[in-house]
Simulated assay, not measured.
Amino acid sequence: MTPLLLASVAAHGATTEAVFSWWSGLQLVGALIFVLAIFLVLVWVLKRFQPGVTGSSSAILRVVATLPLGTRERLLLVDLQGQQLLLGVSPAGISLLHVLEQPLTPPQRNLPTDFSGWLRQAMERRRKGTWHETPVCEPTAAARRGDSSAPPSAD
């Protein structure tokens, strides 16, 4: 505060109070946490009860396979109550490309769908000793030239 302002405050007998106290700071943080908690609960409720997103096989409409063609274009194979439709999706819209007479079944792969499953499968393969079934690295340039595999000396 400037000396002139201090003199006028002292002359009027007023005291200066703290503009920001610890209690008001705690109230602010508490309100922020409360608003964020409500937001997260609403997001969870909307995701949980959104129709058709459950991923169950009893859903009326489900995506069987997808093939990205570009950054914004893709092909979708959609199952609609046993009838499969091939759809083209682009920024311009969605187009029906073909209706399949015989439903296709995607090949079953033993790949895990999430990272934790992939990690568990990789750790089991490592424990069994089948981690490197195929060579993963190419021969080095020195081996291709016919040089010895010993590292160069520091002479």
Results as ranks from 00 to 15, higher is better:
132 H>E: 13
67 L>P: 00
129 G>I: 02
10 A>T: 03
115 F>M: 08
75 L>W: 05
11 A>P: 01
28 L>K: 11
94 I>F: 05
23 W>Y: 01
103 P>D: 06
48 R>V: 03
103 P>E: 06
66 T>Y: 03
23 W>Q: 11
47 K>N: 13
93 G>F: 02
39 F>T: 05
97 L>H: 11
26 L>I: 00
3 P>I: 06
64 V>F: 04
136 V>S: 02
61 L>I: 15
118 W>R: 12
52 G>S: 07
143 A>Q: 15
136 V>A: 05
141 A>P: 01
87 L>R: 01
123 M>G: 00
76 L>F: 08
81 Q>T: 10
110 N>D: 13
20 F>W: 12
81 Q>A: 11
136 V>L: 10
10 A>G: 07
15 T>R: 09
95 S>E: 11
34 F>K: 08
1 M>L: 10
50 Q>L: 04
21 S>I: 14
74 R>F: 08
48 R>W: 08
5 L>D: 12
61 L>F: 15
49 F>L: 03
150 A>L: 15
67 L>A: 03
55 G>W: 07
87 L>Q: 02
137 C>P: 00
128 K>D: 07
144 R>C: 09
64 V>D: 13
89 V>W: 02
1 M>W: 04
106 P>T: 14
1 M>N: 05
107 P>E: 11
134 T>L: 13
90 S>D: 13
72 R>N: 14
126 R>A: 09
51 P>W: 14
103 P>S: 15
82 G>P: 11
15 T>H: 03
14 A>R: 11
74 R>M: 05
22 W>E: 06
100 L>W: 07
7 A>M: 06
110 N>M: 01
153 S>K: 10
79 D>G: 08
